[in-house]
Design a protein around this nucleic acid. Structure first.
Lengths: 214, 214
DNA sequence: CATGCTTGGATAGTGCCGCTACCCGACGAG
DNA sequence: CTCGTCGGGTAGCGGCACTATCCAAGCATG
């Protein structure tokens, strides 16, 4: 298919597709001649993934390029590739080491990991962007005066661990080997809005049950 | 305290504080004379909340103003005030009714709510921004070819319901009545990064356990 | 072969957002 | 009286995700 058809089938304007091509988010089509390039279903699929990452997952274009670069890097093994892709996903602000709440939060997070016996997470520790963003979030909460310590976080961590087991189960169950990395990235990014929405819906539901609508 | 001290104690530049004052995110100080205004600990606390919403919670300035406006609106009852504040929180893109995946996703979401007996959530239905963003997220996932139906979402929903119960328990346990709305908003926004980080950490942990580091 | 539309590629510009730099006149301490 | 600081207001900046415009090469039709 040509650019116009790719645009029509994906609902993305040709101008925007050209922008993504320029930015390297979508691989170039097969050049037929100087003024024609041919795209296939793989391009359509990639384009939909890019749109989903950017619009639903709120991943900045630069990060998306980085993530997809890891996804496409066939020189890496699957686990490393997936890890690299996930580590490139957007992080919040870096910890502000000036703030005394930060070391305290880091200590609590480390204590939490010990409490849970999450040994793999303990090993990578502060190297992981996820670990750092957890520290920032806990430090911020505690800076506002809420006392979130390891014991209070632990039940949430157990819930998210249960969610992670479900994630990996469905990854194993349905994805073909070739698509697993892409699937895992899509799931990591796009499933977060689902979880967030379910969380807020559950809060509304539980609040209505406890206190009524008033 | 004066603007300079507020700036120093919060770590936010005076220029930015003035911007927030202009935008109505922080209430004006008590005007002492033409060139002096006096701020108190309430301002400091509010300022920290604003920073947390914007930087950690990624809430746009305009949304933050709206949310805080509801928080401050003493003419409303607590439940309504909280509900209004939470409904004003940022949503993803609105559902694209052109896309056939959207009605299908909406049907699955409604089936999920029925499956779970979340009757309060069913009543408000598509009026709730959260409901709509769940529909968008599910439609996007399914548009990419992953089959997320009510049965597959249900265990996640149960997990998030468990999280919501924990949320409300701590809300009841620790917040003073006057601060509950603010606490609930802060928790809703700032706790999401915590959950997200815990989720990804748990994924890394579980993945390492199943497949090793390689 | 001539005409006119479409194609892909390149470049510059747009609109929004979260600040930020600068200026001004009013103070108040020494 | 002087000088530094205060607050308030305005204009501008830098980044980001596009988007509008131009261009020359093709291709389809008469």
């Amino acid at each position: 298919m040509r650019l116009a058809e790719l645009s029509e089938r994906s609902g993305v304007s040709t101008a925007t597709i050209k922008y993504y091509l320029r930015e390297g988010l979508v691989p170039p089509g097969r050049q037929v001649n100087a003024t024609t390039a041919e795209y296939d279903d793989g391009h359509l699929r990639r384009l939909r993934l890019v749109r989903a990452l950017i619009q639903v997952g709120r991943v900045p274009v630069a990060k998306a390029r980085e993530v997809l670069g890891h996804v496409d890097d066939e020189s890496l093994g699957r686990t490393i590739r997936l890890g690299a892709a996930l580590w490139a996903l957007p992080q919040g602000p870096e910890p502000d080491e000036e703030d005394p709440a930060v070391p305290a939060a880091r200590a609590e997070v480390d204590r939490l990991l010990a409490l849970l016996d999450w040994d793999a997470a303990r090993e990578v520790g502060a190297l992981s962007p996820v670990h750092r963003s957890l520290v920032v979030a806990v430090a911020t909460l505690n800076g506002l005066g809420y006392g979130w310590d390891a014991e209070r976080l632990a039940p949430y961590a157990e819930l998210m661990h249960a969610a992670a087991r479900l994630d990996l189960d469905s990854l194993e169950a349905q994805a073909s080997e070739a698509e697993r990395v892409e699937t895992a990235v899509a799931a990591a990014v796009l499933f977060e809005p689902v979880l967030r929405a379910l969380h807020r819906l559950a809060q509304e539901e539980e609040s209505a049950r406890r206190y009524g609508i008033e």
